[in-house]
């Protein structure tokens, strides 16, 4: 009995030392080494791909934002609008609705969103693409589909007193194709598009 207790203790002590050694290697040295390389070689990206306007940070290229009328939760017609987000694009509350593809609540939300988006952009309901009426996985999806950007051009042009051609050109310039031509989906980054829009409006 005593030897088995002693053996078990010795085994657990060895296991603990193994864990501590591996913690130093994989839990401290490894992240520090990667951070060192990342900060030296890809400083901008490693720190969150900040986007600047007027010399200050206004967000991250990778994190979506809401574009509401200041102080309200109404979408601002001046800006290109992002996908619906159940957390209003709060990066401290990421995740999705978790509603099933045949769920009644989701059906209702989609139907309402479709009508709202169609009315807001003055287009027929049939023209509203899927990404405009569905919540993303992260709730901070920075992108919309090119189709969703296109149905917003007339409204954005009108509200900013620009020509449709001008705005359509901006959308085209900010449409990113699939990565390497075949990976993922084509998309438009809303923050970058709106920043470009802002520059055009100012001049």
């Amino acid at each position: 009995m005593n030897t088995s207790v002693r053996n078990t203790t010795r085994l657990l002590w060895g296991a603990l030392r193994a864990l501590l050694v591996l913690t130093v290697v994989t839990g401290i040295l490894y992240p520090l080494a990667v951070t060192g390389i990342a900060q030296a070689a890809f400083h901008h990206k490693a720190n969150g791909s900040a986007v600047k306007a007027d010399g200050r940070d206004v967000g991250s290229k990778l994190i979506g934002q809401s574009w509401d009328v200041p102080g309200t939760e109404r979408p601002d017609p001046k800006w290109f609008q992002p996908r619906p987000s159940h957390s209003s694009y709060d990066p401290l509350s990421t995740g999705s609705s978790q509603l099933g593809a045949s769920d009644r609540k989701l059906e209702k939300a989609v139907r309402e969103a479709k009508e709202q988006v169609a009315a807001f952009n003055d287009v027929p309901v049939s023209k509203v693409p899927a990404d405009a009426v569905t919540g993303s996985a992260s709730a901070v999806d920075p992108d919309i589909s090119p189709a969703y950007a296109r149905i917003q051009t007339a409204r954005v042009a009108r509200e900013n007193h620009l020509s449709r051609a001008q705005v359509r050109k901006l959308v085209d310039q900010h449409t990113e194709g699939r990565d390497l031509g075949f990976l993922g989906e084509s998309r438009v980054n809303v923050l970058e598009l709106n920043l470009a829009l802002r520059t055009v409006v100012k001049h």
Binding site: L99, A101, D131, A137, D141
Partner: peptide, 26 residues
């Protein structure tokens, strides 16, 4: 094919998916 009723209504199975990955990547 997105046969689910809510996906049918939306015109695609994009609920809970990111635009940059789409249905295929997801």
């Amino acid at each position: 094919a997105h046969p689910g009723s809510a996906s049918q209504l939306a015109g695609g199975a994009m609920e809970g998916k990111e635009q940059r990955f789409g249905e295929g990547g997801s």
